[in-house]
Simulated scan of single mutants.
Amino acid sequence: MLAQPADDLVHILLVEDSPTDVMMTREAFEYYKLLNPLHVAEDGVAAMEFLRREGKHRDAPRPGLIILDLNLPKKSGREVLQELKADPELMNIPVVVLTTSKSEEDVAKTYGLHANCYIAKPVDFTKFVDVVRRISDFWFGVVTLPPVKP
């Protein structure tokens, strides 16, 4: 899957408030031997602090990909997406929305806020792990990502 040297690995920011989904994502990384560093923000406020390198995140790496849940405490995923895409320093970071909602309205609004893709989160563990693998295969095997600004 990933044949990049360790120094060239793209950091991923997972914005997810469900400890179970965070655990399943980490297990998927381990199972498929995905080497990309995975950072977790448990709510929308923490995500923006990480991205803007504020407070305890002063030395945070700039992620090359964000996996974003929509239903977050403190600041929703939609609000995070809107702020992110309005910020010239952050707007080029690709955002994969991975959420439980299959609502056509959510899909339309999310793409209207410039999400790069929208994936309905499978409930089944095996299917969830496969979705994580497919995200990795696509974003790190097919797509050319924009350069990560330091």
Rank of each mutant, 00 (worst) to 15 (best):
T25K: 08
S18C: 03
G55M: 15
F50I: 00
P63W: 15
I93S: 02
L81Y: 02
A28S: 14
K75G: 07
V95W: 05
A41D: 07
N71K: 04
L72R: 12
P61K: 12
H11Q: 13
K74H: 10
N36T: 09
D7S: 15
T20L: 12
L90V: 02
E30H: 10
L34C: 10
P73N: 10
G44S: 09
A46R: 10
I93A: 06
M24E: 05
N92D: 15
V40F: 01
D69Y: 02
L70I: 02
D21K: 01
P63R: 11
L35M: 12
A86E: 09
A60Q: 08
A47R: 04
E83K: 00
A28K: 04
D7T: 15
A28D: 08
A28L: 05
R62S: 10
K33F: 14
D69T: 05
Q82F: 08
L72K: 05
R78I: 10
S76D: 09
V15W: 09
L35Q: 14
L72T: 03
A46T: 04
H57T: 06
D8I: 15
D17K: 04
M91W: 03
E49K: 09
G64C: 14
K74F: 13
V22T: 12
G77V: 04
P37E: 15
L90S: 02
V95N: 07
L51T: 01
D8C: 13
G55Q: 13
A86G: 01
K85A: 01
V95K: 03
P19R: 09
E49Y: 01
P61E: 15
V15S: 08
K56H: 10
L90W: 05
L14W: 01
I12T: 11
N92G: 02
E83R: 01
R78G: 03
F50L: 10
V40L: 12
M91R: 07
H11V: 08
L13I: 14
V40D: 11
A86N: 03
R58G: 00
G44C: 13
H57V: 00
D8F: 11
A28I: 07
E83G: 04
